[in-house]
Amino acid sequence: SSPAPVPTPNVVRVVKNANTLGIAIEGGANTRQPLPRIVTIQKGGSAHNCGQLKVGQIILEVNGISLRGREHKDAAKIIAEAFKTKEKDHIDFLVVDPG
């Protein structure tokens, strides 16, 4: 039987078209979930409006910044700052479906 296909990461662009990003994340270095995973997507948030982010996806990078090896608080801060900054009107998430 053929080996299970390895899920390939893909970039999802979330346009900041709402007051909140509207995702809840779980995970970070030194926890059972080593990379942040999306556990909730709130209706009306930018992530929900984008329509391409899904619950269960694992976030590898934010605007090219790797989240590998980062503690939960550090990863959450990077995402929050990416949403807050006025330099860009979007956030690029490199995500992968759970393998």
């Binding site: 509207g22 779980e26 926890t31 059972r32 939960h72 995402i79």
Partner: peptide, 15 residues
């Protein structure tokens, strides 16, 4: 696998 089980669960942050 054992190592993962001994690691603490993570907190959840709403963004």
């Amino acid at each position: 696998r054992e190592k993962r089980l001994t690691l603490p669960p993570s907190e959840i942050t709403l963004l």
